[in-house]
Design a protein around this nucleic acid. Structure first.
Lengths: 344, 344
DNA sequence: CTTGAAATTGATAGCGCTGTCATGTTAGCG
DNA sequence: CGCTAACATGACAGCGCTATCAATTTCAAG
């Protein structure tokens, strides 16, 4: 079973190779008659252009390879999968393929890692996900090779590449207002790692919206285990917070675990709000109130921009919203106090 | 900045194109002297072979494209990510790229979906993950196009393709023995979907190892939500099981949620064992006793087989083990009975 | 009808690489 | 020292496609 080539189509349609090529590539100046004839031949033969030949032939002129790559350095399966789903959907819609690459941004040899990835990668563009979005050398290298970039939720280097974002600060502010509306006045926040751009934005947004209210801070690295540790610190303070904003859902799950160990109940003793509305949020008990972030849609849009070769000068801003589940309630009337010491 | 081609290397080394090609491809019959010269030229020029040209040139002979694809139809992020990590690591080790594809096995148009994927995919092989492993048409189409396959944890069509597996039945048996060793005598199992091969294997292994003991069954579709439903059914029976085997961790998390709602405590009122040792297992409270499955290693091995073009006739069997955490304990001495009706 | 410009189509030359096959080169052996 | 076999190297065609540029057709205006 030989491969159907452009020549077969040309023969069948009784036209030249170049005419078929024109039809396939939707070039201008092709008569309707010829187009129809070629398209019929293509269909009847089941012709599909060969990607390798296409990129080879166009090598000089920067031909498309019909594949884009997505770069990760993210420990969170939930986030990663959502991004992949969105990017993959866009790829399928446009006949593209999706390559997955990942690096360790913390390592010394980021340059070598990127070289290994880019060596013979024929890709039409690369989507950067946090925290690779904040790494300048990655962008430098991509730009040097003329590979278009779209960043998802970047914080630094604003405007340097097209980007798809949500307003993290505003979302965090909404968390703060939700807590206050419930009557809370003692707050805690569990921050992500500083190098992760959005971590800082969420923190600022939350604290500013809190105004002068008391807010204890701890850091959890965006990881479940880190969330437990951080929650311990917060929940054992003398002035125990009754409302904790975990800046992602995984860490919020950590708050549950810590609360459990300390004999505290969610939401009676402590209200928790997460961020992401990931799979975790519905898989914990009680269901986690959290900020829904349209990760899949953001990723889809990022891929679409790359594939359509659009590069909007303004960031594409997408909508978030607060999802209320069962992890938030008014503060208990009972006297609060440090736990694990004299209570319960 | 022009691309460094094989011609540049040949000129620099003062040899023919073909000689460079020989060195690059590690072909036999190349003198050490020539090889050294060529390698020096390659290094100094920073030459990297062009993938597109390579596959084009070898098109007739089934040249390599230096990329493999991994096919998913799996709702579980935890599983998917682990597989990807393993496959990706193997790819990086060998200078390969990883393509991600996914289909909906339940849909009518699997053939069309696969066609869309395979259209112009230049891949050296495809890794099938459950449940795509059980879909005969997928294998047919791949084989028709001469694309090598390796399956991860297949159940049907044994021996048809190289495969990397664990002994699911034996693992499930170990779960049963663990429960019995703790003194349990009333069991429950939450099964995965039948089309998911391993679901059946785990069930059989568990029930057989239980011998004549009482075992209630329910189905949870390998999903958290399904696990809750199934656990409800099991825990509200008159003869409430004190030990439940959830055939994956997500459903085990569902058991926790159901138990919580019914006012039952894990492990005091009900012991739970999961399967996978996924991220979930350490993220629930109390920590979930589960079967560790070396998913990442299995995926790594599958990718290695594909890349090295090995096709062992025997399945590659990898080791599992039971990880004991805090979700298992001897059955409570207190009288059992249906819950939500007259107890607690 | 011409005529020239615009629109349409085709012939050809590579893109960078690898397989075939032909041409050296060396070693082995009588 | 000659002759063959085995090894080492090179010349060249062509993989499937696209860009260039030349050839042809079309069509409105004169």
């Amino acid at each position: 079973m030989r491969r159907v080539t452009i020549r077969d189509v040309a023969d069948r349609a009784g036209v030249s190779l170049k005419s078929v090529s024109r039809v396939v590539n939707h070039e201008a100046n092709v008569s309707a008659k010829l187009r129809a004839r070629v398209e019929a031949a293509i269909t009847s033969l089941g012709y599909v252009p060969d990607t390798a030949a296409r990129s080879l032939a166009g090598a000089r002129f920067g031909a498309r390879s019909f594949a884009i790559a997505c770069l990760f350095d993210n420990p969170s399966p939930n986030y990663t999968i959502k991004v992949q789903q969105g990017v993959y959907a866009a790829c399928r819609e446009h006949g593209y393929h999706l390559l997955i690459e990942s690096i360790d941004c913390q390592a010394e040899d980021v340059e070598a890692q990127m070289n290994a990835i880019l060596q013979n990668a024929r890709i039409d563009g690369m989507i950067l996900t946090p925290p690779t979005t904040e790494h300048e050398m990655v962008m430098n290298m991509l730009e040097a090779r003329g590979i278009p970039i779209v960043r998802i939720a970047p914080v630094s280097f604003a405007g340097r590449t097209p980007a798809v974002i949500i307003d993290d600060a505003a979302a965090a502010g909404e968390v703060a207002r939700h807590f206050r509306a419930l009557g809370h006045s003692h707050f805690g926040i569990i921050n992500g790692p500083i190098e992760h751009g959005a971590a800082g934005t969420r923190r600022t947004g939350f604290i500013e919206a809190l105004g002068r209210a008391d807010c204890a801070e701890a850091t959890g690295g965006f990881l479940f285990a880190g969330g437990i540790e951080a929650a311990y610190k917060l929940l054992r303070r003398d002035a125990r917070p009754t409302a904790i904003f975990a800046t992602n859902d995984d860490m919020a799950a950590g708050v549950y675990a810590a609360a459990n160990k300390l004999g505290l109940k969610v939401p009676q003793d402590v209200s928790v709000i997460g961020f992401d509305d990931s799979w975790t949020a519905t898989c914990v008990w009680p269901g986690l109130t959290t900020i829904y972030q349209p990760i899949t849609e953001m990723a889809h849009e990022a891929a679409r921009l790359l594939i359509m070769r659009e590069s909007p000068r303004e960031d594409v801003v997408m909508a978030y919203h607060l999802v209320e589940r069962a992890s938030t309630a008014p503060p208990a009337l009972a006297a609060r106090g440090p736990v694990g010491v004299r209570t319960l």
